[in-house]
């Protein structure tokens, strides 16, 4: 465990908590893509099945349980408790265009052709593109609440920190996971445009709105 990995995990946790608190405090999930949140719940579910087969550490197990629980809580708030505030009309990204190719790819390119390994690979590939419905929604409405941009910032920062962690681990531990690294690079690239807007607008106190 190095500092980049730890801050990456904490950044991921911060993102998840920010989103939950935003929805809970405002009693509204306006501007949030339920589809992205469903995809993240699917990502955590398929990735953390090893909770049943192996024990890494107390830290590892607790974080996995927290991520899974929070992602299901978020989905519950969006599709059940605060369903009336869910902006389904603008959440129109076709998720099958992500899930089907990603499913196919995870069968073709994986470390080992076993059920859990394929599901883990599927979750890695899916996570890299799971934010697209949310970004699509923002591009459609042309704006995002500031708290939503903080959520996206921490969510993007997490994988960027993991990239540094992988460079670190490659040099100091000889650890290298090509599938995770390539997917992590793709994932981080998808956030670059948003990072630019976050730094140039949100951090200067302006609302994130896109030119018409």
């Amino acid at each position: 465990m190095n500092i980049f990995r730890l801050t990456g995990d904490l950044s991921h946790l911060a993102a998840i908590i920010i989103l939950l608190l935003k929805i809970w405090k405002t009693r509204s999930c306006a501007g949030i893509s339920g589809k992205s949140q469903l995809l993240f719940a699917l990502v955590f579910t398929t990735r953390y099945l090893d909770l049943f087969t192996s024990f890494i550490s107390l830290y590892n197990t607790s974080m996995k349980l927290i991520y899974v629980a929070c992602s299901y809580a978020t989905v519950y708030l969006i599709y059940m408790k605060f369903k009336a505030t869910y902006d389904g009309n603008h959440d129109t990204f076709r998720v099958e265009f992500l899930v089907v190719p990603v499913g196919g790819l995870s069968f073709l390119v994986n470390h080992d052709f076993s059920p859990l390994e394929i599901l883990w690979t599927f979750s890695i590939y899916l996570e890299s593109v799971a934010i697209l419905p949310q970004l699509f929604m923002i591009s459609k409405t042309g704006e995002a609440e500031t708290i939503t941009t903080h959520y996206l910032f921490f969510l993007g920062l997490y994988r960027a920190l993991y990239l540094i962690n992988w460079i670190w681990r490659y040099y100091f531990e000889g650890f290298f996971d090509l599938i995770a690294v390539v997917a992590g690079v793709v994932q981080t690239i998808l956030y670059c445009d948003f990072f630019y807007l976050y730094v140039t607008k949100v951090l200067k106190g302006k609302k994130l709105s896109l030119p018409a």
């Binding site: 087969t53 974080m63 599901l119």
Partner: peptide, 10 residues
């Protein structure tokens, strides 16, 4: 085998 290689990352 119904298991995956050990993954220590989240």
């Amino acid at each position: 085998a119904f298991e995956m290689m050990e993954k220590d990352e989240l």
